[in-house]
Design a protein around this nucleic acid. Structure first.
Lengths: 348, 348
DNA sequence: TTTAGCACTCAGCAGGTTAGAGTGCTAACA
DNA sequence: TGTTAGCACTCTAACCTGCTGAGTGCTAAA
């Protein structure tokens, strides 16, 4: 859609002012605040055109104009200027990531906190799905005469464990033996590689302990096949209540009821767009009735170039897109790096 | 405070009606709904007395009466009748606990869900602090030439792990050796029992690997001393928005901002009252400005008679005390039992 | 001691009025 | 032909006003 220069300026002014004040913007306001060098009357003419073309709308006759979804879309696609983070903000992010780089959970948590803190909207971070891998070590530990713990250490640094029931006849030494055999024969193999022939060999070697072996193999198989579950971290839900669009309890209720449904959110985050760039969805472009008055800025983060999770910011359609986009951009890059550092040397 | 029989009946009527309707209760309403056999005028006289004594108050001149905090207190202490759970509810709780008895996290989660679901208020469950214990197994696992994983299995069934940096000179066999030595010498000991003489012995035996030994011992010591951190699970925050007292966004905001502060909540839950019974705190009795219009019903749950965590329900002061108290009571008992079952046989 | 009756109070609502913000149109102007 | 001043018009939000009904407290009679 072609749009002449002055119309763009007027649209830009409306979007900026409305984002800042949450009040419909009138022609006088634009003329005064944005110094376009023309009178309110001229701006009124332009606004009438913009409304006709669907970029702005009027809440009621004697009110100013408000950007429509189409207007925001045009703004995001063509008018918006990049808005770099302040050095202070960049430093904050970097230092937080440097300090708290202990484990994945913490990094995700921190990411969410930073996202919501910097944008003042709600942050959503999807935990990385690292996919299948091989294992480094399996260990059976006797806990008491009738129970044992099976521990599997994966090559990506995660752990799986399970408590199993054992016959009293098995000694701690037996379990040590089983552990060694399993480690010696299977270590480093992926699920596909664990051939049945190999398993037969093991079962014949440890025939006495078939039952316990079954239980251990069950956990091992699960660990090898199962992708880590999608979990989502939410931060700054509270921020949304400061937005004037949520001064109405009914809206707060719909919003919160949606944010409570983890699965739904995961769907929204993990959805369609598999590219690495930033996706901006405005209002109805989010395929969900309940939050059709919100916008989402999402992006994937990666490990070794492979997309493994995503993060996003949810705010009112009247969102500071430029700011949010740069924050999300910067955060994905930093999170990817932090993960890279954390995983350095690990199998995956 | 002595109170004549009819006054008690009037107070009870006011509390019940206000809990049910959230509207100030007038003399006519009481006469009609509660059949005390006297006219509204008589009830008015009683109400005047009750107000003078501080049990009820009037929001404004021409409104009915509302129980004061003191009124709720009197109700809870003297007037309230026990309100057993319905068989259906009891069955629901029991069956949920039977199915989901896999790990502690899940049990806590389920408890919170049930609490909020049954009461329609917000549930808070503090994770058990199992305290110090001894360890069952320690294992060093080589991940790659420069990193290894230390895994410690505690006798209460929890796991601790950490990634450490290692010199390239150390082989996987070395690590196996170190693991065996540590297990052989230290297994089952508590932190106090690990004598310096013993440590010297180990260090001399494994002199070549002092560095890696240090790192492993560090995790081990931490695991042995550190109490599991207090974490809190919240459920049904959303429920509160259906309460008419939270139809005002400002109040929702203060409430949510408090519920976001985990530490504060832990303080409230873990606080003073260390006995096993149920504690009811009404309005200002909760030592927190922000939720002075709420009440809390809390109780501890236990393992082998020892208090190890607590749960609670947060609702408006206009709360269904009788119902909530019986739910909390039933839940603590069931949770304690579930934990008992889960820990059966484990060290602690 | 209880109750009927009555005067009084006050929140909330409906209806009416006003002020101000903002528009669209028209006619004059550059 | 594009721009602008002026003006009539529209509509919301705020304010006032009077009314209604719920509920009270007091008094005097039962």
């Amino acid at each position: 859609m072609k749009m002449d220069d002055r119309k763009q300026k007027v649209l830009l002014a409306i979007v900026h002012d409305y984002i800042a004040t949450a009040e419909p913007v009138g022609s006088r306001t634009i003329a005064k605040k944005f110094r376009l060098g023309v009178s309110p009357a001229t701006i009124r003419n332009e606004m009438a055109d913009l409304e006709e073309q669907g970029y702005i709308e009027q809440p009621h006759t004697s009110a100013g104009r408000v950007p429509s979804e189409q207007g925001y879309r045009y703004y995001v696609d063509y008018l918006m200027k990049k808005h770099d983070l302040s050095p202070a903000e960049e430093t904050l992010i970097r230092s937080e990531f440097d300090i708290k780089v202990k484990d994945i959970g913490q990094v995700i948590h921190k990411t969410g906190q930073l996202l919501s803190q910097l944008t003042h909207y709600t942050a959503m971070v999807l935990t990385p799905s690292i996919g299948t891998s091989s294992f480094k070590h399996i260990q059976l530990v006797s806990m008491n005469p009738t129970q044992a713990m099976v521990v599997v250490v994966m090559d990506n640094g995660t752990l799986h464990h399970r408590l199993i029931e054992i016959p009293e006849s098995i000694s701690a030494e037996d379990m040590e033996t089983i552990s060694s055999v399993l480690n010696a024969k299977l270590r480093g193999l992926t699920n596909e590689n664990i051939k049945h022939t190999l398993m037969k060999e093991i079962y014949s070697e440890l025939a006495r302990h078939k039952h316990i072996l079954d239980l251990a193999m069950e956990l091992l198989e699960e660990s090898l096949t199962k992708k880590s579950e999608d979990k989502i971290y939410l931060g700054g839900v509270f921020n949304m209540l400061n937005q004037p669009e949520f001064h109405n309890v009914e809206k707060v209720k719909t919003l919160l009821s949606i944010l409570e449904q983890e699965k739904l959110l995961c769907g929204l985050m993990a959805g369609e767009e598999m590219d690495l760039g930033i996706t901006v969805r405005i209002g109805g472009e989010i395929k969900n009735q309940g939050i059709k008055e919100c916008s989402m800025v999402t992006a994937a983060y990666s490990l070794k170039g492979q997309r493994i999770g995503s993060m996003g910011v949810l705010g009112p359609t009247r969102m500071e897109y430029a700011k949010v986009i740069s924050v999300v951009d910067f955060m994905t890059k930093n999170l990817s790096q932090a993960l890279e550092r954390m995983m350095r040397g690990l199998g995956k």
